[in-house]
Amino acid sequence: MIVFEHVGKRYGGRSEALADINFRVGRGEMLFLTGHSGAGKSSLLRLIMRLEKPSRGRVLVAGHDLDRFHLSQIPYYRRQIGVVFQDHQLLFDRSVFANVALPLEIQGVEPRESARRVRAALDKVGLLYRETALPIELSSGERQRIGIARAVVNKPSLLLADEPTGNLDPQLSTDIMRLFEDFNRIGTTVMVASHDLALITRLRHRVLRLREGRLVGDEEAT
């Protein structure tokens, strides 16, 4: 699903954010990406989302060389990826329902079909009863779950999460991770960047370890 071949990324004249990264992720896999802040986790995710191009090497996702994409193709590529952000990135001027419906609106899904899928996604994260609420009325754990609902509403084949549990207490963090495992169980490839080592170790999935832009560990699931 994801292939990194000798990938390096350099921002301006500074030292390399990523250097010679090589790994493969199979379809339907679930893995963690870990390391201290500044180790390059976000940069790596940004490369997969094609927000940036690598300075060196190639990134392939679902068989596509991301470097070869024309600028106008990128939006269509991103629609195949669900992304969960640390700060959830919900829009505060619209309801929970409208937030989750956003990816479908962008793809031009019929309203009725869209409503059905939004409710299914909200149901999956256990917040169907909050559909008319505004994000401001929700707790941070709930917001994060809405963010996840939005990421999975168009059934992406790849789900990326950047520190999804960064601001949550251990119990809520575990709940969120269980949600990711649920999505992985139905075939979605899931990649979670997190520095919460205690949680990661407990979950026993594959772990990619980054340190100062280098891949220093690739531990198989136990």
Partner: peptide, 16 residues
Amino acid sequence: RQEIEVVTLIGATHAF
């Protein structure tokens, strides 16, 4: 701005 960033991240075209 935030809205634009978010919709761009989830695959909105420039036209959209």
